[in-house]
């Protein structure tokens, strides 16, 4: 566990540092901000935190089915690959801003990328 991705990135403290930065980027990104209109910000921040924990290889029990169910209403509103790409970009930019080494960013991106088909309901 000592040399897991989650620990190398900095564990829970890293998630806490990343969540505000990431959520600010997502909310101010005109390509995807529409999906967050009228959403409770506190609840959304908790979800962003869960997503970052997942991407950092941290403890989670999300299944592909959870991802499908959780995003189905957004897919119905037109959520597609271009939006997923935008989120991936914001994730990378957040980690770069936090000075996470490039190879760890790549690993986190690969984990996040693995949820693409479930998130988009493919």
């Amino acid at each position: 566990m000592g040399d897991s991705l989650y620990n190398k990135i900095g564990g829970e403290a890293a998630v806490n540092a990343a969540v505000d930065i990431f959520y600010r980027k997502v909310l101010s990104d005109a390509r995807i901000s529409g999906f967050f209109e009228g959403v409770d910000m506190d609840r959304q921040a908790s979800k962003q935190k869960a997503f970052l924990t997942l991407a950092f290889g941290g403890p989670n029990h999300y299944t592909g089915e959870d991802m499908r169910r959780g995003h189905a209403h957004l897919v119905a509103k037109g959520l597609n690959d271009s939006h997923f790409d935008a989120v991936m970009e914001n994730l990378g930019a957040t980690l770069t801003e936090l000075n996470v080494p490039a190879e760890l960013i790549a690993q986190a991106a690969a984990i996040a990328e693995s949820t693409r088909n479930d998130v988009l309901g493919k």
Partner: peptide, 26 residues
């Protein structure tokens, strides 16, 4: 939802008894 102490979907409140700190992280 996440069952990993992150998403806070399963938030509850203790009326009696001490709360383990690890269940309040974040």
């Amino acid at each position: 939802s996440c069952k990993a102490g992150v998403c806070q979907t399963c938030l509850m409140r203790a009326l009696q008894g001490s709360v383990p700190p690890e269940s309040q992280r974040g």
